[in-house]
Every structure is written in structure tokens, then in C-alpha cells.
Design a protein around this nucleic acid. Sequence first.
DNA 1: CGGAATCCCTCGAGATACTG
DNA 2: CAGTATCTCGAGGGATTCCG
Lengths: 122, 122
Amino acid sequence: MDHDMHDMDSCRIEQALEVVVGRWKVSILFLLFLGTKRFSELQKAIPQITKKVLTTQLRELEEHDIIQRVVYPEVPPKVEYSITEYGKSLAPVLEVINEWGNKHVEYMKSREPREEKAIQGS
Amino acid sequence: MDHDMHDMDSCRIEQALEVVVGRWKVSILFLLFLGTKRFSELQKAIPQITKKVLTTQLRELEEHDIIQRVVYPEVPPKVEYSITEYGKSLAPVLEVINEWGNKHVEYMKSREPREEKAIQGS
DNA sequence: CGGAATCCCTCGAGATACTG
DNA sequence: CAGTATCTCGAGGGATTCCG
């Protein structure tokens, strides 16, 4: 069943990254993994984001069925966002990425300024 | 020692993604994980990429110490790129991402056109 | 409250040409 | 061969205003 990356074309890394790449998607996912949030709660938690951008990032996550949008037909309007069952399958992946990120931040801190390696000629 | 994501600020997912996100980085990494490659070999393997872009993507990977650039002072010039020891630590992470990507591609294929969920008022 | 519409701007990436 | 140097372009993201 063809899980491996025998060739570049059967590699699905880019398709996976497409889902989580976006200026604020990781932050949004982080917050929603903590629990359901309203639009305004997300806005407050990420003060730098604008409504328009928040909306588009949410829509994109929704299109990939990572998050769920529930509209309560009230006045004033109320909209809740939450991780879907399917979206939860992302959690272990994000965990692994985060762990590597932790090590990477430490690694880069401890690193010397970069030098070019050249093999000496005779 | 603080590996977990208790709060948004201790989340290092974005720092990790920074390393692998870029139009051609995944392809480049894929090829280099197969073995050392010369600049021209990478170019041939990824025909759509231009020299300039290939160069910048390689430089960025190099800055994160994921790949290594070795210059052979010959005429004509010869430059080899390879995964660093540290860079190899990325392999299992990419594996996990790729596995999820595989499932995601399948999942999206099998999915209905999206509907908005609304809770009915009384 | 939760958007949609509009305008704007940055920046990654592509095309092309030149060089040690 | 393995790059630089310019120029260009468009998409993603940001700021602001208006709306049901």
C-alpha cells in the first residue's frame, strides 16, 4: 500500500504542510486544541491578527476538515470553532514537529558562526 | 525540562516549520537524503527550479545546518551538497509528516463537498 | 458579533542575463 | 560548473471601513 517515499512523486510531505502552513495557523490550532473557541476569543488570544486574516486562516483549516465551524443563529451572532475528530489526528504529528523544534532552537543557540568547508587542493 | 506546549510561547512548531518550508526544500531534502548531490544534479532532478532559487533554498537549509556545502577548488568548479549529521535528525520527523500526508490525501479524496453546520434555533 | 469588501504592500519566487 | 545581478510578478497577509 505504498506508504513509502520511493520517489519524489509519492512523497506527501508538501500536501501535509499545506494544511498547517499559514501565518497564524499553528497558533489557531494550538488554541483550538485546548478547546472550542469563539471567533472573538481567538481574536483576543492573538491580538496582532485582523478579522479578515483570522477568517481566511479559519476557512482554510475548515476546508481541510481540520476544524469545524458552528453557527448559532442568535442575536448577536455566535460562532464556535473546534477541532474535528479528523483534525485530532494532527496532534501527534504536531507533537513530533514541536519536539524537533525544541531541539532545533537549542541546537542553533549552541552553534558557532557558520564557516564554509573547502577541501584543500594539493 | 519544558518540552511540552503549556502555552503558545513555548511552542516551537513554527521554528521547526521554518526549516522545511520553502517552495523546493522538501524536494531538495528528499534528493539529498538519497545521497550527496552536486548542484547540477539537483538542477536536473528538479527541472523547474532556476539556479537562483536553488541557490537560495540551499543557502537557507545550510544556515540551519541541515545540509552541508563542500567546494572542491577545481576547474571547472565542483560543489557537493549533503545532509549533515544533525540534518539526519529531521528524517523521522519528515517520515511522520509524510505518513499523515498520505492519509490526508486519501481522506480528502473520500470527502463530500463541505456543508455548514448550524444548530437549529427553537 | 462575526464577518465581507476594499485597498495596499511586502516578500518569496520566477525569468533572464552575465561571470570567475 | 556554479553561481551572482536585476527585474518582475502575484499571492498572502495587513489596515481600514462597512454590514446584517
